[in-house]
Structures are given as structure tokens and as C-alpha cells.
Design a protein around this nucleic acid. Structure first.
Lengths: 246, 246
DNA sequence: AATTTTCATTTGTCAGACAATTAAATGTAT
DNA sequence: ATACATTTAATTGTCTGACAAATGAAAATT
């Protein structure tokens, strides 16, 4: 692990990169202890605060964890799917909000990817998945529910659907696509009628999954995608009209 | 923005979280300048190195950028898809390698998600996408190519396919799934015959895209997924046998 | 042998300093 | 007055040295 002594003004980034590369190449393995901060600062010929900044960078990516005390130090972290979910969701959410991604583009992505789960989910869904989906659908049919709670339940429903595919890699990749939609969905006002329609589709999807009918799940998801898009468009149009009449 | 003064021993993480929350809630907007490190250390009642550690954490997630000089400081960064790709790929790759995700599970995820792009890509592919895919397929047919270069070209081919769907959110989400497969693919030895078969499928997929035949693309991807899986299995079996005969 | 105490190691935090960079303010000459 | 050079102030980048807090291991005590 070496850093370029010629280019200054980014030492902690260079050190972080060197260690990150070592982890990714397998030179440092899971649970292996890094040298202490004092040793690292000697090796890289920089001060301890600089080393610490580098370690914090790696910690922010969950690549290492630190522990105080005599046998403490920085250890290569086993990156778990649960750890990665959070970062994935944060990044996806910010990407959508900062790049003015339209509702329709985000919606298209979400449902396209979700439909990819349909055949697998129809094959592998367990009673647990069905129970979660049915419970969320029932919650969504409660009259007093706020729009925000409705959206949160919608996300929980769809995550159960994705998890039903029984592939952790798919679950991870789609966590971002599903969760990042929530802020966009929150901009929609759901009328009683539109909720009824959505809950109906949710129930039908659960039925189709129970019957192991992947084709039907796919069609229902397609219908749900279309309906969601229409709903968003009508809300946007109404707002546009209201703005112009001001 | 407040931090809990009672719980010590994670001040920089708490400060990073406070600022991150402010960005995600919209309290800090893109390109807005944060207070200087000196001001932040006063506000949070911590030392400047602690503030700096917090800022480095945020920098590692591309949430802020810093600039030196009189009008410098830390600014809320507009998170771009290109910035997010790198992190996404790093995280996905490590997730697969550290959690002993089998080739078949990763492969299933990749092709399931990729097939979700088929109808969109068939509809929207441009001449550029087709040209890239054909160029990579041609490169893959060169006899002298190393296995690693073959895999790299395979990744480039599939990224072009994904990009052809014309949805940046999909491209982002799938970057991880596609790129993270590369280390796993690199474990496979591609014979001349298997390369021929793969290149043939790649060419046929390009043809189907050109003809706007989404159904055909889907079927070809399915065939490619199955073939890749068989190939990996035969390699694994051969290694297993060789190991037992030692 | 079990328990308590001491100790060494390591991370977490702080204070203060100087270097490097950068843009604005100031001064100077044409 | 304008163009150019100089100074200045603000800010991040880095270093040094120090102490606090946590923690496991070793030593001492019962």
C-alpha cells in the first residue's frame, strides 16, 4: 500500500483509497485488523489526524469498524446486506431528488425491476411473505390512514413482494428503487377511490402469488404501474391548473 | 441541527448524521455552503478535527465537496449518477465476495433484472447503443483475447444493453448487478466454443434490438442466463473433481 | 482458585499552530 | 480610468502533542 508523496492536498483520500483497494483485492480479509493509527501514520508518513480522516471515510462506507481498548483497532468489516440497504436508500433517494427525475421515469424503473421478480416470487413465496402483504393491504384499506402512512405501507408491501423472490441480491438492488419512490409518492393525494383500486390490485397480486401464477402477477403489476402513473399525472395536471389560475 | 451531548464516543458520526439529515430533509440545498469548520466546531461544541472527521464521512458518500481558499468551504454536492455508480459497484462487489453469494444466485439476479430492460431497450435503443454492442461482440470474437478482457468486454456489452432502455434510474440500479458479476465471471475459463456460443447470442440480441423485438430479446437473454449458469456449473464441477483426486 | 487491581494499548477528543490555496481588496503604473 | 501587480483575509489541509476513555491482559491479593 503506497500513496503518491508528490500530490499533496488529499492525503486522507489517497490513504483511504489505498486501504479500500487492499480490501477489494483481497489483500486484507474480513475481520483482519489494520495496523494501529500510530503505525499507519508511520507507514504512510502522515500525522494521526490524517490517518483518522481516512479511516472515517472507510467507516462511512461500512468497510471497516473500529473498537477501542487494548486489543482494539480498525477491522475489515463483513459488509452485510442490511448495512448496505441504508446507504443504497440514501443514495437513491438523493439521486432522484437532486436530479429532477420525473415521477414517470422513477415509476417506470421501479415497476420494470419489480416485474422482474414476478416469476421468481410466484415460485418461491412463503406463507410469511403472503401474510405480510395481506396485512399491509389490509392496513391500506383502513379509512383513517394518512397519505404518508399509506405510502409507508405501500413500500412495506412492495418490499415483501420483492423479498418473496428469495434472492438477496435482488432484494438489495431493489431496496433503493422501491424506497426512493416514497418521497415522490408522498406528493400524491390518494382519494378514497384510488386507494380502493390500489388495495384491490394488491390483494389480487397476493392471490396470484398464492396460486403461483407468475404471469398474472406480471400483468397485475403492469396494471398497477399504469394506474400509479395516471394518478400522478392527474395530480400534477390539477396542480398545474391551480397554479395558472392564481 | 443538534447532537446528543450525553452519548460520547461517536461525536463525528453524530455530526455527520445531523448534517446528512439536514441535506436529505431539504434544510440544506444543493450548492449551499456549510458553515466553516471553525464555525461548525463552535456550533456543535467540538474541536475542529472532530468536525473534519464528520465532513470526511460525508465526502466519502459524495454528499459534500470541499474547496480551499477565501471563498472556499464545504458545499452540498449535487449527487450525480456517475458519482453514485462507483460506490454502487464497490458495495455490490464486496457484498457478493464477502457473503459467499453463489454464482447462480448472482447470475439469477443479474439476468432477471436485465430482462426487465428488454422491452424498453427494444423500443428505445439508438444506433449508438447498437454500435457499442456490436463492437464489443466483435471484440469478444477475437482469438487472442484473455479471459479477463473477455469478461470486461462482456460487462461493457451488457451495460450498453441496459443503457439502451433509456432510463437513468434503471442504468444506475443495474450498474451494481452487472459490474459486481465480473469478479465471479473471472473465475470461469472460457473455451473457444463457449465464447463462440456467447458471441452468437450477443449478436442475435443486437439483431433483435435493432428489429425492436422485445420478446425475442427476452428469450435470448433467458438462453444466455441458462448457458452462463451451465458453464459455471461445469467449471465448478471440474474443479471439485480435480480437488478430490489430489 | 477466584477475585481484584494495575497496567499497557488503542481509539476518541481537544488545543494550538503553520502551510497552501484562493478570491477579494488594495495599491501602482501606464 | 484602466490594467496589472501586491497584499490581505478567510478557509481548508496538515502537523504536533497532549489527555481522556475503553478494554483486555497481566499481576497482585485474598
Amino acid at each position: 500500500m503506497k500513496i503518491d508523496p508528490k500530490s499533496p492536498s488529499d492525503l486522507s483520500a489517497q490513504i483511504a483509497k489505498a486501504i479500500r483497494d487492499a480490501i477489494m483485492s483481497g489483500a486484507l480479509i474480513v475481520d483482519e485488523r489494520l495496523p494501529s493509527e500510530a503505525e499507519l501514520s508511520e507507514q504512510f508518513n502522515v500525522s494521526r489526524p490524517t490517518v483518522r480522516e481516512a479511516l472515517k471515510r472507510l467507516g462511512a462506507q461500512s468497510l471497516i469498524r473500529t473498537q477501542r481498548g487494548a486489543t482494539g483497532g480498525a477491522f475489515v468489516n463483513r459488509l452485510r446486506f442490511e448495512d448496505a440497504y441504508g446507504q443504497q436508500i440514501t443514495t437513491s433517494t438523493l439521486l432522484l431528488s437532486m436530479n429532477e427525475v420525473s415521477f414517470s421515469v422513477a415509476c417506470e424503473a421501479r415497476y420494470a425491476l419489480e416485474r422482474a421478480c414476478a416469476p421468481l416470487a410466484a415460485e418461491r413465496r412463503t406463507a410469511d411473505h403472503l401474510a405480510t402483504m395481506r396485512a399491509e393491504a389490509h392496513r391500506q384499506s383502513q379509512p383513517g390512514l394518512t397519505d404518508e402512512a399509506f405510502c409507508a405501507s405501500d413500500v412495506a408491501y412492495h418490499r415483501a413482494l420483492v423479498d418473496a423472490a428469495g434472492n438477496p441480491v435482488i432484494s438489495y438492488q431493489l431496496a433503493g428503487a422501491v424506497e426512493a419512490m416514497q418521497p415522490l409518492m408522498n406528493m400524491i393525494t390518494f382519494t378514497a377511490r384510488s386507494r380502493e383500486r390500489i388495495v384491490d390490485l394488491h390483494s389480487q397480486i397476493a392471490d396470484a402469488l398464492e396460486a403461483h401464477d407468475g404471469q398474472m402477477v406480471d400483468e397485475l403489476l403492469s396494471a398497477l404501474a399504469q394506474y400509479t402513473n395516471e394518478l400522478a399525472r392527474s395530480v400534477m395536471d390539477a396542480r398545474q391548473a391551480a397554479r395558472q389560475s392564481d
